Computed example of a mutant assay.
Amino acid sequence: MSTPPRRIADIIARAAAPDPVPTAIVHPCDAHALGGALEAARAGLILPVLVGPEIKIRAAAEEAGLDITPFELVAVEHSHAAADEACRLVRAGRVAAVMKGSLHTDELLAAVVNADSGLRTDRRMSHVFIFEVPDYPRLLLVSDAAINIAPDLATKKDIVQNAIDCALALGIEAPGVAVLAAVETVHPAMPATIDAAALSKMAQRGQIVGATVDGPLAFDNAISPDAKAAKHIVSEVAGRADVLIAPDIEAGNMLAKQLTYFSGALSAGIVVGARVPIVLTSRADDEATRLASCAAALLLARHKRLKPPQ
């Protein structure tokens, strides 16, 4: 495994503890899913509870040469049942996080958002990417690039609050949140700028808490002090954003993939806003990404336990 960059490595180091988080691994029926879970267990991040068809899980472990005997295995018939069972384990207090295995993301999230048996809260769920970007002096969080397709203002409020909670859990003090648009001024023909201005005002009035929120901001003046100065922008967030809020899933997804493929950024990612953090892994993820995602989920789970009621 390649050595993770410093700030991602710091997250993994902060998360490792004598009390790893019991985590439901949903349908871990291939070497990637099992290997990622066991690597996180060896790092002291999670205590895996393997949920899925027993024959398939044991076959995958044998084929990959992985020892799963130390871990609990909850046998169910198929992937749908595994997703449902993982939600039941959360509601029963048996696990404090969920990690996607070798099933489709939509299948897992369908169980999570079920109104009767899922993991919904009074807040909309959203995905948060956590990036280690070369030459950027801090972690950079991007949301939402994976779940909410065309969020309205109420959904964007939850997306912002979820991202702030994630930033705080990662140890980012007083995070700066930039709500992105194509320009940094409110334009009546560009709804993203109107939503951004509204979110900024909502933060000022205490409807969003824990961070300084500003928008609309274009990408350049959100992250570049030179762009901020050139455009004479007066803002506590511009030029030093910790969190970037995309106007829709297309913009967020393209931004996240550009950071990965053009900038060589290392990423982690979790779903926030459910009863527990959810780790969405991909077959393309390397071990460092899987570890960082599990570490972020662990830190968020701890943050949720320690956070005083509002």
Rank of each mutant, 00 (worst) to 15 (best):
L170N: 01
G176F: 07
A189Y: 15
A192C: 15
V160W: 06
A182H: 11
N148I: 02
D144Q: 01
K156E: 01
A198T: 10
I164A: 13
A163Q: 01
D165H: 10
A145N: 01
V209S: 13
T185R: 14
I164L: 13
A189F: 13
V209M: 15
A198G: 05
G206F: 04
A178Y: 03
C166V: 05
I164S: 07
A169E: 08
A203F: 00
A196T: 09
P191L: 14
A197G: 11
A150V: 13
L180P: 05
V183R: 14
A150W: 12
D158N: 08
P151S: 10
I149C: 12
L180G: 14
A211Y: 13
A167R: 13
G176Y: 03
A150N: 14
R138I: 00
I194L: 15
P188R: 13
Q207E: 08
N148V: 02
L170M: 10
H187F: 14
I159C: 04
N162W: 05
A167P: 12
A203H: 02
I194W: 08
L199G: 11
P151G: 12
I172E: 06
V177C: 07
K156L: 09
Y136P: 01
L180S: 11
A178V: 06
A198P: 04
A145H: 02
K201R: 09
P191E: 09
R138L: 00
L140E: 00
P175T: 15
L199N: 07
A189E: 15
D195K: 07
A169N: 07
Q161I: 10
I164K: 13
